[in-house]
Design a binder for these strands. Sequence first.
DNA 1: TGGCGAAATTGACTTGCGTCAAGGAGGCGT
DNA 2: ACGCCTCCTTGACGCAAGTCAATTTCGCCA
Lengths: 248, 248
Amino acid sequence: MASPPTSLSSVAHRTIRRTCVNCALSELCVPVGLDQTDMERLDQLVDRQQPLPANAHLCRIGERFSALYAVRSGCFKSYRMDREGRERVLAFHLPGELMGLDAIYPGVYQSNIVALDVGGVCALPYNDLSRLATQIPRLQEQIFRLLSKDLSAYAWLGGDHSAEERVAGFLLDLSNRYRERGYSDRAFNLAMPRRDIANYLRLATETVSRVITRFERQGLIRTERREVQLLDLDGLNERANHCLQVTV
Amino acid sequence: MASPPTSLSSVAHRTIRRTCVNCALSELCVPVGLDQTDMERLDQLVDRQQPLPANAHLCRIGERFSALYAVRSGCFKSYRMDREGRERVLAFHLPGELMGLDAIYPGVYQSNIVALDVGGVCALPYNDLSRLATQIPRLQEQIFRLLSKDLSAYAWLGGDHSAEERVAGFLLDLSNRYRERGYSDRAFNLAMPRRDIANYLRLATETVSRVITRFERQGLIRTERREVQLLDLDGLNERANHCLQVTV
DNA sequence: TGGCGAAATTGACTTGCGTCAAGGAGGCGT
DNA sequence: ACGCCTCCTTGACGCAAGTCAATTTCGCCA
């Protein structure tokens, strides 16, 4: 009771060590369904890295693949460059999601991954992870599932959708993912600029802007810079042509 | 030396039982890198199914996911239906390739898979396969790799490419895959009608036809219905904008 | 051999989205 | 408070690819 609560040691004592076991994201991330013992084994190989400042790169194309990354906080973007040097956004990653999966096959990172705002990641050294996965069937299963899940996401992007379908689908996808994470699915903040959204959806920035304006006029959404409110989910689903949902 | 080689029993005796161990595709398929003992364990769970006639379905969307399928011979197509009932081709599968990977996550097939011509598959019961994968690290690794490989393939389809880029990329992709399988990479037969190619590339059938005609006029290829000859790989690579290759 | 239907090609027209260009609105450092 | 820069929005115009429609070719079966 004597030492003031502001002393360094006191703070250190009160700080709960971040582990998979007490991580709020464990139900979205790799350790889904693991019991406490297995989670602790997983925990030992996880490298909880320093938070990255906005616009800092986590990895770059061509670097030797050594680890998968799980988002702990913030929002990340993965992208490639085409031969003309133009950026091509492949995905946005929210907390609990796994990044770098496309690097497993070639053994070399296939995309640049950058923090859109300040964000933290857990690095999962791949060799250790796959070794552990042979020992914990539930873990192997979860990695299979996460890889398979990404296939469906990419398949959507590959479809031939109109600009309206793409933008509506994008908003609904984010809405679903925020809900899963316990955030509001009706009002959220876009971590990425319009340019990145457009690039991800393979549209021009101007087209995204126009569609958003149109949705706003139709009373489907309300926006204020990067703040978005979804006012009419049914209407958005109609615009998205119902083609978003992965049948689960 | 006495019995004539044409007698039925003789044929039966000379027929080698099809196993993973003696399968010509083992270096492209799931058992990559397994030693003979492990291959025999894998072999025991493989269900070598009757050849399917052309246009027969292997599985349909919504069916409970129970097995992955490896192509043994022929060419398969996987596709979905959008809400308007239009077909959307997701992939063509050549011998040695694994199908149904996108069903792992939801536990329900996410695409219809149909034989384009008469073709054979090996069914790999998923529960048995993943159990075996925990016991054979090299097998687990290979499944990770195959899943990861598909991610890159889907990423290409998701890019915003012109019609010329798409058609050139498609031809070169087939060329590479045929070469891997020991076939000519300069002359091959398209197992699928133009309509399916167009659908896969998210183009109109007419557009594919026009691009093919243009390539032919430019001396890049020669076609005779479904027979294709690639005359100028460099030229095609240029049209494809070099954006096909996965950096391996 | 001839006739039917599916597949492929080609031409004429339409359109959704990209490109170009200009203007407005915050954010931030000095 | 000012200026600068980046982000976003809006309008005018052009083009690549889609749609519609007609014709040819091939495979197939009677």
